[in-house]
Every structure is written in C-alpha cells, then in structure tokens.
Amino acid sequence: MTTETAVAIEGLVQRRAHFELGPVDLNIPKGYVTAIVGPNGSGKSSLFRLMLGLARPDSGGVRLLGEQVRGEDRVSLKTRIGYVPEEAIDIEDRLSGEAKSAFVRQWYPGWDVNYYRELLRRFEVDPALKLGKMSKGMRRKFELSLAMAHHPELLLLDEPSSGLDPIAWKTMIDALHRFMERGDRTIVMASHIIDEVRRLADYIAFVAQGKVLGMYEKDALLEAWQTMYVDAGGRTLPWKEMPGYRSCDLAGGTTYKVVTEQAFEAEQWLAAAGAVLVSKRKLELDDILLNLTEHARGVY
C-alpha cells in the first residue's frame, strides 16, 4: 500500500523573542489519524498556525494536500480543510450559532446541511444560543460540527476535547472515527490527553521545546517501550550497550529494573548475555512522553 502525504513540513523555523520553533521536518500520511503530543508550550499550536498560513515562518515551508501554504488566503485549498483552533474567538461572542454557520457555509461549496444538523443533534448543541452564552464544552462541539460539515479531506484539531464532559468526549471520539471510515481522510490533532491519543491515533508525533522528537506508529511504539526486571546473577552488565537503553536501576538483590525502547532486540541481547528476564511490562504513553521530553531537555 503506497502512502500519500497529507501534510509535508520541511525545514520549518519560526523565531520569536521568547520562543523558537524548529527546524521541523515532518510528513503526515493521508488516511490516518496523527496525534501531535507534547507538553504545554512545546509549540503545538504554533505549528498548527503555520500549517494554515495564519503565521509566517522565518524559513522552510508547509505543503497541505499537495499545495504549498503561503501567507495569502487560498480559498480553493481551505475548502478542503477543517480547523478547530485551541481557543474560541471572543469577537464572535455576540453571534448566535445560526448566524455563524450561515456566514461560514458560504465559503464551502461542499457544505452538507444534513450532516451539520446531525452532528449538532448528536452533540446536543443548541445553535440558537449566542456563542458567548454557550458553555465551553458546547461551544467546542459547535465549532467541531462547523469544521466537519463540509466533509473536509483534512481535519486539523487543536486540543479537540478541551472542556468536554466524558459523555460528549465519547460522542466526539465516535464521530471522528466515523469521519475516518472512508479511509481517504486525514486528521491531525494536538493533544495531551493520553486516553484520547490511545483511542484515536494511528501515528504519534512527539514535540518538545519547539522540536519534533520523532514520529511513531502507535502500537509499535507501545510495544517497543518496556520496563524489564532482569536478574543479572550478581554480575554487572554493560547496560548502556543494551539495544534501546533508556535507564537502569538496581531494584534489589541482583535484580535490575531496565527501561528500553527496543524491547525485542533488548530481550535477545539479555539472553545472549546470560541474564534472566524475570518480568516485563509495557510503558504507558505518558511515561514514554516523559522519558522522551526529559531526554530532550538533557536531564539524562
């Protein structure tokens, strides 16, 4: 199966007085959900703004769905994209949901009023309310319905679930899975909600301090990172030579607790070294993130 690229980011750099993003090189495949995961202030939202041409890079560039993104508005490209920003736009507070959708739909030839109504109904959103009167969660669900109503090829979601209660959250996850059902659509979402990433993502790109630490297929990543308890039989092994070595602590007696990001190779290495693997378990996604970001910060 050949994989097309939905978002191609090349040598992207944005310099600000207090923050520098990049250089970022990232290829996001079409037909999948890619989660951009990272701590607060790591540059996720800046990356989204650059992807959409809402901010200008100092160097490098972004191609969305094969088209180069530039500063000017490219209506034809934007009709193929849906975007939900992290923060609601407060100058719209006095606008009713109906009024905003009446304005927005003019720009999208593919606007599907039935699908839009269905999303509002499933999300239990009352579009007659003024946006400023909606709860944070309802406004979020409204914005998401609006962003999906024209069946975009590419959906960019910046912290989609912020403010959602658990029921609304499940409805959203379900709606996004259905959106992906056709197989030719792409979602790129920024998130630090681990459960959301677990449930939705096919690929995960980790960012920290303005840099991309790596992009991984979710299940392969979760299988590769393991904590192993190893009985070295009283010897000292050259742990740092173990494939995927991340950390090693003496757990008690002659047993060591080692963390690897290449579980399969590490296990073979241990067997060859004559060490006894007592037990192993997978790391949770947040532990992997912590490990990667600390490593990037040079903590160890």
Partner: peptide
C-alpha cells in the same frame, strides 16, 4: 467490522488491524 471500526473497538491503530 471495517478496519477503522475494529481499530476503535480494540484501541489499536488501523495499521495493526490491517
């Protein structure tokens, strides 16, 4: 189930289910 449906059910990626 479709690949996406089973992925949702098992919380796996579609790559795994495929």
């Amino acid at each position: 189930p479709s690949i996406r449906e089973l992925a949702q059910l098992t919380k796996c990626s579609v790559i795994t289910v495929r």
